[in-house]
């Protein structure tokens, strides 16, 4: 009995670590969605495509300009973020007064177009992108498993970025403006704050977070045009479970669901792609506003 239990733990422990790595991506992506939804009230369905663009821009920087991983980690989110500014200014900003449906359909259509363009240009089977020298090499021995250094870095980077985003929104003056503008935009504008520009930059920041996650993902997953669409549905479930627009909720739920999914992969792998949706259904029934949402 005890032996059986020890065996299960030995089997489970590495999966918990791996679950954290996947959770890191869920957390980063749902964080961007939460920021955008919280401030703009737009459901950004193009998030997966923007994640994919982040990975592709990193690839282009390396192969066309010769710029490596570390600068790309900064440059790619900036470039994709600038693209976000363009989209927000020309299209999304026209939809704030309308029903959610319009924003969702617009961003969904954009996602299809962006993916189509990349597929036409780069094909669908993907491009290689090697991890940076410093994080390559043999995996680290954790005693119960070997973990590639790069995966460790992903968890650290995602946690750091989540913390930074939370600090900016909850603890700085800029964050206070943002939160105030969500409650009452007209009043904040009356105090002399340029609300439309703030909203544009918020969208760009959310998009930048997606691109940052994309660069992080490039060395692990195949860089291909559909890499975002296979993640984004799960990420939406994470956002719904955590509570729409809740920063803390999306980070905690992201990592938490990564863990749950990781464990499912050991005990009943066939269900690993559905377990998150089962949890979503239960949460919606028991706590319709999500675990961290305000009802």
């Amino acid at each position: 009995m005890l032996e059986e239990l020890l065996f299960q733990i030995e089997l489970g422990l590495p999966q918990i670590v791996l679950g954290l790595v996947n959770g890191a991506f869920y957390a980063l992506l749902s964080l961007g969605l939460a920021v955008i939804f919280g401030m703009l009230n737009v459901i950004n369905f193009a998030h997966g495509a923007q994640f994919m663009m982040g990975a592709f821009v990193a690839w282009m920087l390396l192969n066309w300009v010769g710029i490596g991983y570390w600068p790309a980690l900064v440059l790619s989110p900036l470039i994709v973020g600038a693209f976000g500014v363009l989209i927000e200014k020309t299209m999304i900003s026209r939809l704030y007064k309308l029903d959610h449906l319009y924003g969702l359909l617009l961003t969904f259509g954009l996602a299809l177009i962006i993916e189509g363009i990349f597929r036409n240009q780069f094909g669908s089977s993907g491009l290689p992108y090697a991890p940076p020298e410093a994080l390559g090499g043999p995996p680290v021995d954790l005693g119960f498993m070997f973990l590639p250094k790069y995966r460790l870095w992903v968890v650290v980077a995602a946690l750091g970025m989540s913390l930074a985003t939370w600090l900016v929104i909850e603890k700085t003056r800029l964050g206070a403006y943002l939160r105030a503008a969500t409650e009452n935009a007209a009043l904040v504008q009356a105090f002399g704050v340029n609300v439309p520009r703030m909203v544009t930059l918020t969208y760009a920041a959310g998009v930048g977070l997606a691109a940052f996650a994309g660069v992080l993902a490039a060395p692990i997953y195949s860089v291909n045009p559909q890499m975002g669409s296979s993640l984004i549905i799960v990420v939406f479930a994470v956002v719904v479970i955590g509570g729409m627009g809740s920063i803390l909720g999306s980070v905690v739920t992201g990592f938490g669901l990564g863990l749950v999914e990781g464990l499912t992969k050991v005990f009943y792998p066939e269900a690993s792609s559905t377990v998150i949706f089962v949890i979503m259904a239960i949460v919606l029934l028991a706590r319709p506003a999500g675990l961290f949402g305000r009802a």
């Binding site: 791996l18 993640l231 792609s273």
Partner: peptide, 12 residues
């Protein structure tokens, strides 16, 4: 082990 079609993470 059987994995769902179009998975992204195979490390597990």
């Amino acid at each position: 082990v059987r994995h769902p079609l179009q998975s992204t993470d195979f490390s597990s």
